[in-house]
Amino acid sequence: MPEMNDATFEFLLARAGLDLTDEQKAELMTVYSGIAEMAERVRVPRGRMAEPAHIYNFTEEDLA
């Protein structure tokens, strides 16, 4: 699980456009590991061909 350093944390917040207090930042840092763990969990061996769930197909309505 990658570590979150202060610079990366500040970059991600700025990228998201979030203006947080120091207290909010400190609290958010405490739950980063929870997100990182979830992100690891959804990575299972699947190869490059595995499709996401939201790939779509055209329906009759598209062709009308």
Partner: peptide
């Protein structure tokens, strides 16, 4: 809700797509 919204900063685009790929497998 503010706290939930802030979590969005931690999820990368690739994380999201991996979750959506995982979704297909789980379904």
């Amino acid at each position: 809700l503010r706290s939930r919204l802030m979590l969005g900063a931690f999820v990368t685009g690739v994380d999201y797509v991996q979750a959506v790929r995982r979704r297909r497998e789980l379904r």
